[in-house]
Structures are given as C-alpha cells and as structure tokens.
Computed example of a mutant assay.
Amino acid sequence: MNAKEHYANQLGNFYSWMLSDWKTKESEFREFLISKSLAPKKKNLAIDLGAGNGIQTLALSKLGYQVIAVDFNQQLLSELKENAKLENQSIQIVEADILSVSQFRLEHPSLLVCCGDTLLHLSSKEEIEEFLKSCFDCLNQNGDLLLSFRDYSITLEGDSRFIPVKSDSSRILTCILDFEGDRIRVTDQLLEKQNDVWKLSISSYFKVRLLKEECLVILETIGFQIEWVDFYQRMITILAKKK
C-alpha cells in the first residue's frame, strides 16, 4: 500500500485526532516562521505541499502570505477548508500529489513548504530528487524551500520499534517501524472502542529512509543554497534558497 492509499483507507480517518490541538500547533509554527524571519514583506505566494488539515497553511496565511494548499487526501482538505473558514482565512485548495508542484511554476511562488514527513512519502530517493528539482524550477529567484522530516538515522530494533503515539478512553494508536534498507515499513495499529467492544484496524505503507546529510547533498547538487538546518518539533528542518 502506498502513502495515498494508507491515508485514504486508514490514517486520514484519525489524523487530526492524532495531532491533537491543531490551533496550538498552528500558532507554534507561525512563531517559528517569525523567529526564522520568514514572514512575508509583501503579499508573496506560498505553497504548502502536503497541507493536511492546515496547520502550516493557516500559519502562512495569518502571516500575510497568499497561500495555495496542496494535498492528495480529500478528507483532510475538507477539514482544512473548515478550519480556514473558522479562522476567517482565504486559502486556495488543490487536491493533488506534491509531485505536481511544477504546475505552479507560472504562479511565481516565493516560498514552498513541505513539512511533517511528507517528503518521505515519496517512493524513493530518486523520486525525492526529482521532486526537489521541480521545487527549484518552480520557485522565484531567491525563493525559499522549507523542508522538515523525521530523523531515521538510528535503526530501531526489537521492542523499540513499537511507538505509542496517542491514546484516550476510546482509541489507542501505536506505530510500528520496520527498517528495510533505504525504506521503512510504517504500520499504524489502531484499537478503537465501539459499543464497549475494542476493534483493531491495521494498515502499513513505506517511507523513504532519507538521512539529513543525503538531503543536503541533493539540495546543493540541484543548486540550492542551504540557509540553515535546525531541529523543530522533533524533526530535521532545512531552509534552502534558490540563488
């Protein structure tokens, strides 16, 4: 099962619950952008690739960007639309794979954002490289690409592969990681209480195991200038500029 199918059949149904308070996370991301001097000086265009339910999208919009939100999951985009309405933000929403970023080249974006583990949802390191090349071509001169992804440099084995993600009185979510060379099998195991009976649902998909150093080499080979590398909310975070 690929990432799109996994989100459609399993993860999209409880993704927002898993993330908890999206308003707090949106505010935190907005403050992070401000701290990194990424607030726009005018009504610049930002494209949120893998927008999900809108945490990054709404932060960008509130800072003053014109925003296009791109995601392949219709359910999460519907939630984003409702969240944007609740926050009185005007967002252009596009249901598409992030690999379609080249379609926005004539829009002249000054910022592309691909956060969460979205980058690792692609099928291979080769596809990641092609995607990053498309981002470079799409951006305005001196435009920025903001990436974040999890650090999978340490191979988890045995019991450490089982990661408790979230639980409450009616749901228990556990993530199981199996390291297989340059990819990781991610299994979401959800126990859900329905009419006092616990029901189990399981779904797996693969992520690319991309190391920070590998990503930096790819970006620099394409022509990006690395502005900074940080660790934000337990994720490797990189700002690369098109020079």
Score class of each variant (00 low, 15 high):
95 E>S: 06
173 L>W: 08
118 T>L: 03
116 G>K: 02
146 L>W: 03
150 R>G: 11
204 S>Y: 00
202 I>M: 01
169 S>I: 15
146 L>Y: 05
161 R>M: 09
174 T>G: 03
170 S>P: 12
106 L>Q: 08
96 A>M: 12
177 L>K: 14
177 L>R: 14
205 Y>W: 02
139 L>I: 02
144 D>R: 13
131 F>T: 07
131 F>H: 04
188 D>G: 09
152 Y>V: 03
125 K>G: 03
138 C>G: 09
142 N>V: 10
172 I>T: 15
185 R>M: 05
161 R>S: 06
176 I>R: 11
122 L>D: 04
112 L>T: 09
134 S>M: 00
107 E>A: 15
111 L>W: 12
162 F>N: 04
145 L>T: 06
204 S>P: 04
108 H>L: 11
135 C>R: 07
117 D>H: 06
186 V>T: 05
190 L>M: 05
193 K>R: 11
98 I>M: 13
157 E>S: 10
127 E>R: 08
168 D>P: 06
121 H>E: 01
138 C>H: 02
117 D>A: 03
130 E>C: 00
184 I>Y: 06
173 L>R: 07
152 Y>C: 02
204 S>R: 02
103 Q>C: 10
182 D>N: 15
192 E>I: 14
194 Q>R: 15
199 K>N: 08
103 Q>W: 11
166 K>I: 10
153 S>H: 14
178 D>R: 14
184 I>G: 10
176 I>P: 05
191 L>C: 04
118 T>N: 06
142 N>E: 14
130 E>G: 00
138 C>D: 04
165 V>T: 14
184 I>F: 07
193 K>G: 12
139 L>S: 01
158 G>Q: 10
164 P>F: 13
187 T>Y: 09
112 L>R: 04
97 D>F: 00
176 I>C: 06
133 K>A: 01
177 L>Q: 14
136 F>D: 01
113 V>W: 01
151 D>E: 02
124 S>W: 14
112 L>P: 11
183 R>V: 00
198 W>N: 04
191 L>K: 05
130 E>Q: 00
126 E>Q: 12
193 K>P: 13
161 R>L: 04
107 E>G: 10
95 E>P: 02
107 E>M: 06
138 C>K: 07
175 C>V: 13
172 I>S: 08
120 L>W: 03
193 K>D: 09
195 N>M: 00
104 F>G: 01
208 V>T: 15
121 H>T: 08
102 S>I: 06
115 C>E: 01
154 I>Q: 14
181 G>R: 08
104 F>L: 00
109 P>K: 01
199 K>W: 10
109 P>G: 07
100 S>Q: 10
165 V>K: 15
171 R>C: 02
134 S>Y: 03
100 S>T: 11
168 D>S: 07
163 I>P: 13
124 S>T: 14
102 S>V: 04
133 K>E: 00
209 R>H: 14
158 G>F: 07
112 L>D: 11
181 G>K: 15
143 G>T: 00
161 R>Q: 07
170 S>D: 12
